[in-house]
């Protein structure tokens, strides 16, 4: 499968480890993710007011890129695209849904973007996790050369991957897609009661205390259930859960650091693709001591 890939801004900087590992893992599964040309920031949050179309222009412009790629044959999928970041996924899927269901909005956006070809309204926005699930987790297991035996992972889903219901890729009340994936990689799954609680998102910019509280709750609940590491698919969750452990430690003296993986880093590890493809050095809390203790490195 050769599919247009939308990276998003953070995947080129703070979340480089998500991009590098996901591209390598996907390739191993026969998914070639082709970065779309001239992509722009998706806007990261979907504007929720009924009359605000301006903030969907950015997403729709990216969908036009997908349409062009389908037409010019640079991919072998038709009107499909894949994202890795949960927020990009949510924002673009929401925008795609809005213009697909509201012909008037589509006309308005198309006439506003008069320097672009008209968007046809047909692009389907997918998250890599969905594509993998639809392939079947047995296909994942078949590629595992180094099962993550003994590694206790508490999958964390956050918000944008699973909510709202019509956008999410899994049951918003009880998501399991991460657990199924990591089970296929040979890891032990720990169910965190806080797996779908918001990490505080952009409050990290101006209201860090709130994020520290939420992240502390999410991490310690995972630890109480026996989790040794947590997983995510969102660069903002990753920042709040991983980098903010510095502040959590300052506030909660008993708090013990815990590695935060991108789902794709666990895949490249289990697929035996080498440390370059895992990019563990980019994680704030170094996961390598834990992995060494489990003989996984």
């Amino acid at each position: 499968m050769k599919i247009p890939y939308y990276p998003g801004c953070s995947l080129k900087t703070s979340a480089k480890n998500l991009e590098v590992s996901a591209l390598a893992a996907a390739e191993k599964l026969g998914i070639e993710m082709v970065e779309m040309p001239r992509w722009n920031c998706c806007g990261t949050v979907f504007s929720l007011t009924s009359d605000d179309l301006m903030h969907h222009v950015a997403s729709v412009r990216n969908l036009v890129r997908v349409q062009e790629m389908s037409e010019n044959g640079s991919v072998d999928t038709t009107n499909k695209m894949v994202t890795l970041c949960s927020m990009c996924f949510n924002t673009m899927k929401s925008a795609a849904k809005r213009v697909r269901e509201n012909a008037e909005d589509l006309v308005k956006i198309n006439s506003f973007m008069d320097t672009e070809p008209d968007y046809n309204g047909n692009v389907q926005v997918l998250h890599l996790l969905e594509i993998i699930r639809d392939m079947g987790f047995d296909k994942v297991s078949a590629k595992v050369t180094r099962p993550l035996e003994g590694l206790k992972i508490a999958p964390y889903y956050g918000c944008m991957l699973i909510r709202p219901k019509e956008i999410g890729i899994d049951d918003p009340e009880d998501p399991t897609i991460g657990a199924q994936l990591f089970k296929a990689l040979g890891a032990e799954i720990v169910d965190n009661p806080f797996k779908k609680v918001c990490c505080g998102a952009y409050h990290t910019v101006h209201n860090k205390d709130t994020v520290i509280e939420l992240a502390h709750d999410i991490l310690t609940h995972a630890q109480e259930e026996g989790g040794e590491a947590i997983s995510t698919s969102c660069p903002l969750c990753a920042f709040n859960l991983d980098n903010r452990q510095k502040e959590i430690k300052e506030k909660y003296l008993k708090f013990k650091e815990m590695p935060v993986f991108y789902f794709s880093q666990l895949m490249t590890l289990a697929f035996g693709l080498g440390e370059d493809a895992c990019m563990f050095e980019a994680n704030y809390v170094d996961p390598r001591p834990l992995l060494k203790s489990k003989n996984l490195l």
Binding site: S10, S14, G43, T44, V45, Y202, T204, V205, P235, N243
Partner: peptide, 22 residues
């Protein structure tokens, strides 16, 4: 007036969403 040391570490995703919402 976001502190310099914060600007050095905050990912774009945090800034874009905060500015959109706030």
């Amino acid at each position: 007036n976001i502190p310099k040391e914060e600007m050095e570490i905050l990912p774009q995703i945090a800034l874009v969403s905060a500015f959109r919402k706030l």
